[in-house]
Write a protein that binds this DNA or RNA. Structure first.
Length: 463
DNA sequence: GTTATCTGTCATCGT
DNA sequence: TGACGATGACAGATA
């Protein structure tokens, strides 16, 4: 504490009782540093008295350290030394009535230091603003995305439709809300479907288990060969409809429609097909198709022409090919116990069992993936909100810091002026003023003020 | 033709 | 041990 940086005014606490204390002014105990030293002009003038009191009031600044020295300046902005101690401390020349420190500081420090800070702050502010704008944009975008994905009206509508479309001929009436109309598909699709050629070997077959379960059988591949991925459009050959004319998104839309989650008609579908598709979806009658299957399809052709059978998903086609005797919704959505019970009600081949289990796994995983993505988006939105809040908090703290720095600089400036004024009133025995370069004011813990020569101070510090 | 996005699927891990 | 959910990674489709 005996030695502080340039910021500390030459008010140093003595280590021990000083030899020649000098009383500066009445009312304030100030032993003379030199024998016989006395204040110049015994009757203390009011101005000095007030000045001294002000100085005393600021005496705690003797131990004040500039905060900028204590922490990482680079974290916010680089700080110049806040107060130029021109003429004090180590200064060599000093006039009897120097310009006030505040004048110096106002010309140097404030302009030289803070004038540099303010732009930095403004710069940050600009950045923050830009960041906010960007983040807000993204946030809005994502919020829109998330909210759009929900499509509550569609969901409610579909759920209503699902509930009303519960089914015919199944032994167990499923209570799952998610049971979609497609559950009414005649999986055994006998008759017309008897000659249905599986497209599994012709189309994308990414759904096939690649080792996690036994290879699937298909009419074309009874042994359960695993064809590689192929384009859906590369060769769809359906006898049960115009599926070969279906686009992938149509198939997906159908597949999505069987999803048990809220995003029945995905945002993508909405974007891709627009309101017409949505209305079509909403207005789809879920009627019995020409084959008697109750299906819904947002791509149904207008009335009057042969209705387009719902584009079957790959698993649906496989199930059809292998004559799985229950709907996919049940395969996917039934609890494991009910599912196992369902399996016991039928005698299924190994291929059928494998397919059913794969369908169940894929169906659940599809839902899980959708939920996972939804959560991810929500998480991103949440993090962006948090980021915005932290940006705001940082800016607020930076502003607060700037204000404190201004405040501190002002106080130091004022202290310097007071210090100068006190010295201007001090006179030695010969009536000569004490040089502020040679002496400094010290305050002891008991509150007494001493005028201490720097040489003595050096020795005291050395000891 | 390139790129971004969406979606389904698989593999893997943890419960 | 199997079922299941979560999630990263990948691939295909599409705008």
């Amino acid at each position: 504490m005996c030695s502080t940086a340039n910021y500390v005014l030459p008010l140093r606490r003595t280590c021990e009782v000083l030899a020649t204390p000098s009383r500066v002014c009445g009312g304030v105990p100030m032993p003379s540093t030199f024998p016989g030293a006395r204040p110049h002009g015994a009757p203390q003038d009011t101005e000095m008295d007030v000045a001294w009191q002000e100085l005393m009031a600021l005496s705690e600044l003797q131990e004040f350290e500039v905060p900028g020295e204590g922490y990482e300046p680079t974290q916010y902005q680089t700080m110049e030394p806040m107060v130029s101690m021109r003429g004090y401390g180590t200064a060599q020349t000093h006039s009897a009535s120097p310009p006030t420190a505040c004048e110096l500081i106002s010309a140097d420090t404030y302009n030289g230091c803070y004038s540099e800070e303010v732009p930095v702050c403004h710069h940050q502010g600009n950045n923050a603003e830009a960041t906010y704008g960007h983040s807000e944009y993204q946030l809005n975008e994502r919020m829109h995305l998330v909210s759009s994905q929900a499509l509550p009206s569609l969901t409610a509508h579909r759920e209503q439709m699902n509930m009303s479309g519960n089914s015919q001929g199944h032994r167990r009436a499923s209570t799952f809300f998610s049971q979609g109309p497609s559950q009414h598909m005649q999986w055994t699709a006998h008759g017309q479907n008897s000659h249905l050629r599986s497209a599994d070997d012709l189309e994308s077959d990414s759904g096939l288990s690649l080792g996690s379960s036994p290879p699937l059988a298909s009419p074309d591949n009874p042994a359960g060969g695993v064809p590689g991925r192929q384009s859906l459009d590369s060769g769809m050959t359906y006898s049960d409809g115009d599926a070969d004319g279906m686009t992938e998104h149509a198939r997906r839309a159908h597949a999505t429609s069987s999803n048990t989650q809220a995003d029945a008609l995905t945002l993508r579908s909405v974007k891709q097909h627009g309101q017409a598709a949505v209305l079509n979806y909403m207005n789809s009658d879920f009627g019995v198709s020409s084959r008697g299957s109750s299906q819904y399809n947002i791509y149904t052709k207008p009335q009057g022409s042969a209705s387009i059978p719902a584009p079957l998903s790959r698993d649906e086609r496989r199930a059809t090919s292998l004559k799985i005797p229950f709907p996919m919704e049940k395969i996917i959505n039934l609890p494991v116990d009910d599912f196992n019970e369902l399996l016991t009600q039928y005698t299924l081949t190994d291929s059928q069992l494998a397919l059913v289990r794969d369908i169940r796994r894929r169906g659940k995983n599809k839902v899980a993936a959708q939920n996972c993505r939804k959560r991810k988006l929500e998480s991103i939105v949440h993090l962006e909100r948090e980021l915005n809040q932290l940006h705001g908090q940082r800016e607020h703290l930076a502003q607060e810091r700037l204000e404190f720095q201004h405040s501190l600089a002002f106080i130091k400036c004022r202290l310097t002026d007071l210090y100068t004024e006190v010295f201007s009133h001090l006179r030695d025995e010969a009536g000569q003023p004490y040089s502020i370069d040679d002496y400094s004011l010290q305050q002891t813990p008991d509150g007494k003020i001493y005028l201490v020569p720097h040489t003595t101070m050096s020795k005291r510090e050395q000891c």
